[in-house]
């Protein structure tokens, strides 16, 4: 999987893992109500998320709560995040989309990326509590994908397709298993009071 680095032309899509992550991010933000803002130094992430969140049409929805999406976090984002968080009321949410343990896969250029743990500790210190965690591309997904690749090489396309289907079935994981995934999406909510 090559690192995505900018807005993509027609007919070129992010890989399945990133598509799933972006769509999940948009669906969660939409459920939350919005409006949504995006903070990311990664041009591809910004373009893909803006395209999706711009489709939300969240104006006028009942119980709408603002959402801040922090994607591919890096230290350069701290000043903007600090400013944005000040405007986020209780009940507002921060969605963090970050590389999981297999770091470097999503890194764009030379930016130093923050570890997910660092990001969550930084948010916790500002009153944000984790409420849900999703992983995209966990160990099980990688195992079945690899097996599919190997049996395809052995000429067993039928088995390869079954293993690929198995991989897709476990593409999205939740809870603790999410931490070992290639991409992780964490929903944090500002504690009231």
């Amino acid at each position: 999987m090559s690192p995505p680095s900018g807005p993509l032309p027609p007919g070129v899509l992010p890989d399945l893992l990133h598509r799933t992550a972006f769509n999940l991010c948009a669906a969660l933000a939409y459920s939350w109500g919005g409006p949504a803002w995006i903070v990311s130094g990664n041009p591809l992430y910004t373009a893909e998320l803006t395209g999706r969140l711009g489709d939300g049409g969240r104006k006028g929805r009942r119980n709408a709560r603002p959402v801040l999406v922090w994607a591919d976090p890096c230290p350069e984002d701290y000043p903007e995040m600090t400013r944005r968080l000040e405007m986020l009321p209780p009940g507002g949410a921060v969605l963090v989309l970050a590389a999981g343990r297999r770091r470097g896969v999503t890194s764009a250029g030379e930016r130093g990326l923050l570890r997910l743990g660092q990001v969550l500790r930084w948010l916790a210190a500002r009153g944000f509590e984790e409420t849900a965690r999703y992983g995209i591309g966990g160990p099980e997904y990688r195992f079945w994908s690899r097996l599919a690749y190997l049996v395809e090489r052995l000429g067993q396309a039928d088995r390869a397709d079954r293993f690929r289907a198995r991989a897709r079935a476990v593409l999205l994981v939740e809870g603790k298993a999410a931490s070992a995934a290639i991409l992780t999406l964490v929903l944090t909510v500002r504690r009231s009071g």
């Binding site: 669906a27 939409y30 489709d55 049409g57 849900a132 939740e174």
Partner: peptide, 12 residues
Amino acid sequence: GAPWASLVPRSG
């Protein structure tokens, strides 16, 4: 008519 569906996390 909505552009996105809602999914409830297992944890929630």
